[in-house]
């Protein structure tokens, strides 16, 4: 159980994929070796005015080299993610991880699967696509420009949706699923709440097992502070109310477990 580490990682490379979307490879001591798809790390700035960790999902895990890739969105000027985006190869960064539960790989073995990502929920689906042994239909939703599409194409059949219709289906991931008349026996999804809500509804109407990766403002990242709770159907194990902790009980939940 005790497998979380606080480490000083080293930036191996940094690349701007699109305006505001950055990709960073980090060399860790142990965290990459322990991580599974769907987990996240807490990243810390070196700026004492920005103390709280930024929880960032893992996009790729390279156990042989102990490296992790994070693909993240810069949320604005004067933000922690802006500072991360300015880091260069050789710089060091404090990270805590691996955090959260991750996507269950066994549940999807040999099945016809949807891996659905939306916006900055796209990156964690890449490592899942690499590790999941299934018939993979990768449905990725973007506002306009796309990122990581080449990597996805190598790991399954990619279907793209764009809000502006510049590539793939015009609309959202559900529109792409309908337009291509796709079906699945299991769903893994990460993205904004409206997307997850639509996927949850689709999955439940069609009796499909569906795992969703949730997001919420976090402080500790390890389940102690109770900041990042989501509404759960059943009484939670920690506080015996209806609040599961996204950072510890999640971020991946069965869609039927949570209210979105």
């Amino acid at each position: 159980m005790s497998c979380k580490r606080k480490e000083t990682a080293m930036v191996v490379s940094q690349e701007c994929l699109l305006p505001g979307i950055y990709s960073m490879w980090l060399e860790t001591k142990e965290i990459a070796g322990l991580a599974v798809p769907g987990q996240f790390i807490s990243m810390y700035t070196k700026d004492g005015s920005k103390l709280l960790p930024r929880p960032i999902s893992l996009c790729e895990i390279e156990k042989e080299t102990n490296r992790l890739r994070v693909v993240y969105r810069v949320t604005g000027e004067n933000t922690g993610t802006k500072q991360f985006s300015e880091m260069k190869a050789g710089d060091t960064i404090e990270i805590l991880g691996p955090l959260g539960n991750g996507f269950p790989l066994e549940a999807g073995r040999g099945k016809k699967a949807f891996l659905i990502g939306g916006g900055i929920g796209v990156p964690p689906m890449l490592e899942l696509a690499k590790q999941l042994d299934a018939q993979k239909q990768l449905v990725m939703g973007y506002r306009d420009e796309q990122f990581l599409t080449d990597e996805f194409t190598k790991n399954g059949t990619l279907y793209v949706a764009t809000e502006d219709g510049s590539a793939g289906t015009k609309g959202n991931v559900m529109d792409a699923i309908r337009e291509n008349a796709l079906g699945a026996e299991i769903i893994y999804a990460c993205g904004p709440s409206p997307m997850l809500r639509a996927i949850k509804q689709y999955a439940e109407e069609n009796n499909i097992v569906c795992y969703v990766s949730m997001e919420e403002r976090m402080a500790c990242g390890i389940g102690a502070c109770l900041a990042c709770v989501c509404q759960s159907k059943e009484v939670d194990g920690h506080s015996h109310v209806h609040n599961k902790r996204v950072c510890k009980d999640g971020p991946v939940f069965l869609s039927t477990e949570v209210e979105i």
């Binding site: 709280l52 109310v241 209806h242 609040n243």
Partner: peptide, 12 residues
């Protein structure tokens, strides 16, 4: 048991 407040519960 207390359920606490709605989210977001935290801000930097």
């Amino acid at each position: 048991p207390w359920a606490g407040n709605p989210t977001p519960r935290i801000a930097e």
